[in-house]
């Protein structure tokens, strides 16, 4: 294996629908802060996480303006985590399953995300020190 720790994560959930996506980002945050190399294989609904057309909104029920609500947008978290990894001499390789993205119309992602296939997941996991699959339920 590599000298630098490399971890691969698979995630299947879209944002805003389960606690898993939040925990997944918390895990990435720890690994990125340590300067680990991180691979992400976003499968099924997970391809929504770096979708570039996510938009903030105000919240009438909360009584908040657009700025006050400061609604979380996971695409921004992906950006931030890519930067955190870079600042710590690590790297995030984010692969969105191409067919899953096509099915869902996810045609635009933040920069640093590429399309890929199950073969990419196999290759990335094979070259990693360990992997964690966060399956959907």
């Amino acid at each position: 294996m590599n000298e630098k720790t490399t971890l691969t994560f698979a995630i299947m959930d879209p944002p805003f629908e389960s606690a898993r996506s939040t925990t997944f980002f918390r895990l990435l945050n720890v690994a990125a802060s340590r300067g680990y190399n991180i691979n992400v294989f976003a499968y099924e609904g997970g391809v929504h996480l770096p979708f570039n057309k996510q938009k903030r909104h105000a919240n009438g029920v909360h009584g908040t303006t657009l700025e006050e609500e400061n609604h979380p947008l996971p695409k921004e978290w992906v950006n931030e985590l890519i930067n955190i990894a870079k600042q710590n001499n690590g790297h995030i390789e984010w692969v969105n399953c191409g067919l899953c993205a096509d099915e869902r119309g996810i045609d635009e992602t933040v920069s640093g995300v590429r399309r890929g296939s199950p073969a990419d997941f196999w290759k990335l996991a094979s070259a990693s020190d360990n992997s964690l699959v966060i399956g959907t339920r």
Binding site: T5, L7, L27, V30, R34, Y36, D129, N130, S131, L132
Partner: peptide, 8 residues
């Protein structure tokens, strides 16, 4: 969890 993964 990350410690555990990093240790293999």
């Amino acid at each position: 969890i990350i410690n555990s993964l990093a240790k293999g």
